[in-house]
Every structure is written in C-alpha cells, then in structure tokens.
Computed example of a mutant assay.
Amino acid sequence: MAQDAFEDIVETFEFLDDWEDRYRHVIDMGKAMDPLAENLRVPATKVEGCASQVWLVPEIDGQGPGAVFRFKGDSDAMIVRGLIAILKALYSGLPVSDVLSVEAQAELARLGLDEHLSSQRSNGLKAMVQRIRLLAEKAAA
C-alpha cells in the first residue's frame, strides 16, 4: 500500500548496505525539506511524546473520506526532520480514508528503523504516526 516515493526510499535503503549511510541519507532527506514557517510552530501543531520539538501541519485537499492528505512538518533535530520526510513519502497524496489503512509499523520496519532508532526516537516516531492518523480521521469525518 506504500506510496511510490516511499518505495523509492526502500530501494535506496536496500542499496545502502551500511546503517551509517542510511542514517546520513535520512538526515539528507530532512535537510532537503522546506522549513516550517515560524507562525505554524505553535502548541496546536506540536507533537507530544517526542524528545525533540516536532510540528505537523495538515494540508487536506477536498472534504470527506476522499480528500487528499498532505502535511508539512519540521523538527529541531536533523534525524527527526528526516523521519518526517519518510512519513511524508509514506502518507502524502493518499485519500484520508487510506491513511488509516497504512500499517506504518510494518512499512517502516522495511527500512530497519525499528532496529536502529533509540527508544526515545521510536516513541517519537510512533507519536508522529498517531498524530497523522488523528489528522486524517478528523479530515475524513
């Protein structure tokens, strides 16, 4: 069910044998993202449960279950910015009803993230996925 952009990341990770190279790639993906405007870095967009500062802002095109889900995000930690970029590849462009069907843990496990992130980072990643699901649920209603 993964998006093409996410499949590209999976292929890149398969090509990069060393986890250090994969880690650098994640950071580079985060660096490539546009920063979130300061006026969007507010308590309402902040993701709780992350060790780093993380903000996610939904961008929903349309209404109801068929509305297209996209989001902007940012963090004060480079690796977390990269994780946001991965989540954007996984979710952006899906109908909001499909966002709820994504098995994020299984998809992210394909990248080996579950084996290489600290427990704090893993918990933060789960918190970001939960926020994305919540945003999609609200948009689908």
Rank of each mutant, 00 (worst) to 15 (best):
E107S: 12
V54A: 05
V96F: 00
D34Q: 14
S75G: 01
R110W: 04
L94Y: 03
L40W: 07
A67G: 04
E14D: 14
I86Y: 02
L94H: 02
A85Q: 03
S52D: 04
H25I: 05
A109N: 12
P58K: 11
L113G: 09
S92F: 00
E103P: 12
M33Q: 15
D17K: 13
A51F: 06
W19M: 13
S75F: 02
L108R: 13
V47R: 09
G49W: 00
V26F: 00
L94F: 04
S92R: 00
Q63E: 14
L40K: 15
D21T: 09
D74W: 09
M33D: 09
A77M: 07
E59N: 14
G93A: 02
L87W: 05
S52A: 15
E11Q: 12
Y91V: 05
L90Y: 02
I79M: 06
K72G: 07
V54N: 03
K88Y: 00
T12H: 05
D98P: 00
A106R: 15
A67S: 08
E59K: 15
Q63D: 14
F71D: 02
A44H: 02
V80M: 10
D17I: 09
F13N: 05
D17L: 12
V80P: 06
L87A: 13
D74C: 12
V80Y: 10
D74F: 11
A44S: 15
P58M: 10
V102S: 08
L113C: 10
G64A: 13
I60K: 02
A104C: 14
L36K: 07
V10T: 11
E7H: 03
V10L: 11
H116C: 06
D28W: 03
E59A: 13
P65C: 06
V54S: 04
G49N: 03
S118C: 10
S75A: 10
A32P: 12
V10S: 07
G93N: 01
A89M: 06
D34Y: 05
V47K: 08
R110H: 06
D8C: 05
G66H: 02
D17F: 12
D21G: 10
V96M: 00
V99S: 01
I9T: 15
A109T: 09
W55L: 07
V57R: 12
G112Q: 09
V57W: 08
I84T: 01
I79C: 01
V80T: 15
L100I: 14
T12I: 11
D74I: 10
A109R: 13
G62D: 03
A51Q: 15
L113N: 08
D8A: 14
E115K: 15
L111Q: 01
V80L: 07
P43I: 04
L87D: 05
V42M: 08
F71Q: 06
F71I: 02
D114A: 08
R70F: 03
E103F: 05
A89R: 03
E48H: 14
K46W: 01
D76K: 14
S118I: 08
Y23A: 03
L83A: 02
P35D: 13
L111H: 06
K88G: 14
D18T: 14
W55Q: 07
S118R: 04
V68K: 08
W19D: 11
A44C: 04
G112Y: 08
A85C: 09
S52L: 07
R81D: 01
G30N: 09
A89E: 03
E14H: 14
K72N: 10
D98R: 11
L108T: 07
G93K: 00
W55A: 08
I27S: 11
Y91I: 07
A44V: 12
S97H: 11
D98G: 00
L94S: 05
P95N: 04
